[in-house]
């Protein structure tokens, strides 16, 4: 059984009286250890596809199966728990809570699931901060971090619940070459460790890291 299965996924949006197709019908399969790169021109629906696969929104047609369970028919709590425990997210803009410290931001997933004892998960969070090279910055405010450091913070947060799949939407889109390389190497390492990685990018250098490539065309 495939880890993640997208069956005839299609997404349309109602904009005023018009029905806009954001994603034309796509099917795909993702497995453990796979580093799937999704690419294509701007507006082709790459982000939309990633959102559908990761349960951030629901398809207009088709379905997504995670370990055989359909994401679009399961209840909201269960889906949220899967996102919390089984998925890790990295976005183009590093989303953080600016009023919390770097370490607290890394620990945020535990606020919504997993170990309820802070003394237990804080060690894990510190380990992950160390893994991305931010160990010394744990007490700082995210506002004081550079773009590259922020993206690494997000990376640590994505890993902290030991996810089965990492979803990354243009994770290097706003980084310089050195930081991009660092993030891509980390992603590759995670795939090597057996996690599935699904990454959207339109950068040639980034595509080279993928084990498989899915190219979307503009609708």
């Amino acid at each position: 059984m495939a880890l993640l299965l997208g069956k005839k996924l299609k997404r349309t949006y109602q904009v005023g009286t018009q029905l806009v197709t954001a994603l034309a019908t796509v099917s795909l399969e993702v497995n453990s250890g796979q580093f799937l790169v999704i690419t294509g021109p701007s507006g082709a629906g790459k982000s939309t596809l990633l959102n559908l696969l990761s349960g951030l929104e629901q398809p207009s047609e088709g379905e997504v199966l995670f370990n055989g369970a359909c994401l679009s028919t399961m209840n909201e709590t269960k889906l949220a728990n899967i996102r919390n425990a089984a998925f890790g997210f990295i976005f183009q803009i590093p989303h953080v809570l600016p009023h919390k410290t770097v370490l607290e931001n890394v620990a945020l997933p535990f606020q919504y699931g997993g170990l309820s004892n802070a003394s237990q998960y804080m060690d894990q969070c510190l380990e992950h901060l160390e893994y991305v090279g931010l160990k010394k910055l744990g007490d700082r405010s995210p506002n004081t971090l550079s773009g590259g450091e922020l993206q690494r913070l997000v990376f640590a947060r994505a890993l902290v619940r030991d996810p089965q799949i990492i979803f990354a939407d243009e994770p290097t889109g706003s980084l310089d070459a050195a930081n991009s390389k660092l993030i891509l190497e980390l992603l590759k390492e995670q795939a090597y460790k057996g996690r599935a990685v699904v990454m959207v990018t339109h950068e040639k250098e980034a595509m080279a890291y993928g084990s498989d490539i899915l190219k979307l065309d503009k609708v």
């Binding site: 951030l56 949220a80 728990n81 996102r83 997210f89 989303h95 809570l97 919504y112 699931g113 947060r157």
Partner: peptide
């Protein structure tokens, strides 16, 4: 966007 982030990483509507 922060609400979106919280939801993405597992916050239910209830939370």
């Amino acid at each position: 966007r922060e609400i979106g982030l919280r939801m993405a990483i597992g916050a239910t509507k209830k939370r």
